[in-house]
Design a protein around this nucleic acid. Sequence first.
DNA 1: CAGTGGTCTAGACCACCTA
DNA 2: AGGTGGTCTAGACCACTGC
Lengths: 243, 243
Amino acid sequence: MDIIQTKSIAEQVDEILLKRIREGVYLAGSRIPSESDLSDELGVSRATIRTALAKLSANGMIIRKQGDGTYVNVRVQEIMAHTGSLWDLSQLIENNGYTPSIRSTLMERRSATEKEALSLALEPGDELLSLRRLFLADQQPVVLAHNVIPFSLLREPMENIDAELPIREIFERYCHQKIAFAVTDIRSALLEPEILEFLGGKASGVILHLQVAFYGKNNLPLALGEIYFNDSILRLSLVQAWS
Amino acid sequence: MDIIQTKSIAEQVDEILLKRIREGVYLAGSRIPSESDLSDELGVSRATIRTALAKLSANGMIIRKQGDGTYVNVRVQEIMAHTGSLWDLSQLIENNGYTPSIRSTLMERRSATEKEALSLALEPGDELLSLRRLFLADQQPVVLAHNVIPFSLLREPMENIDAELPIREIFERYCHQKIAFAVTDIRSALLEPEILEFLGGKASGVILHLQVAFYGKNNLPLALGEIYFNDSILRLSLVQAWS
DNA sequence: CAGTGGTCTAGACCACCTA
DNA sequence: AGGTGGTCTAGACCACTGC
């Protein structure tokens, strides 16, 4: 089989299997070929097949039964719709069945507040790149996202930045660093007038408020995010699979 | 009934490493021994070591750098506190630094509402076991959890049930089935008078409302949960690590 | 009983980092 | 150049399931 060097074999196997599920080659609820059969068919070792299957299993897309076989989860469609990353908001909107679009409402260079400096391990007054973006689902505003990045991390001119990218990609592309992990606090909040101005809705409404801190491999905080999420329109849902 | 289940070697390795991190044998930020060294020291293959390390890495507790080494995340303490399962509420309270306790306020057998029947694939009027439990952090009510289980799934007398267990364990112990995966919707909500009665707090407050559906390996819905979560006291936070 | 997934091993080669 | 993590292989044994 032809191996494209950029992706690992396990990832390619993963994509093949996902494609077969999506296209109905493997029907929801049905049993898929055994590990050995897949190993033979695709010409890779059983260990590699297992790596791919483990990922699908962790997402809840397949159900593995020792001594029996591996089955496509009957709810695979529903689960695929919920498996979008918490931090790729466009993806999340799409998974909810809407067409996503982004309106960049602010991109400025400014000094860090005391609180931001603390969270980002900067001196108060150090400069930040501040992004405010409004995400729309079918033209209706649903998410307001505010991100800040230490200006010193930027490796490209600020003007080059494509504000429609997910924050993780912005970081990789314009700061030449990778985000290693993120910690997200989820809270509920009243829809304040300031937010209401962007999101619309009822003044008495409640919204989800996500506070995210992104960290790099060097353990340094790289960026912060404040996300206001209209959960009356968009569902925030998580899937947890147990082995 | 003796359920002596030997833990896998990878799990044991995992525990050894976690213990060393917790006890400071491996300090936060420091580099831990290489895979080969651990493999030699513990007398297991490198593949097994890698399985254990992969789990720690997925939780964000260690940071792996190709060509360099594996480092303990500087924020390992913070991350450990956030790594509790979303559905083990006692654990979550403990992770937030409080002493958890549980008050069972209701355990009854009743008919399913139309909505419950739909979600659980039952006929309206089929019987349910309904549990309502109040979780306290340092004696203060913080979470109200309401679970329903089809009565027909119970394999033990209702009176035997220990209502202090996490729902997943209740299920395994009294229904003799394992939960394979769960789908959780997270919403924000106003603190309604009915909930306020249990949780206390300000009448104008907002809370997190989690709706959970648990499914078994046979893909059948096994149980439902409605969780009201006082997020002004308890933090709901998630850690996401990227490879 | 045969077949399945679960686990573990030993060895190999690669890409990458630091020196 | 040497060591590290990343990947893959081939083979083995086990625990469990359904027939």
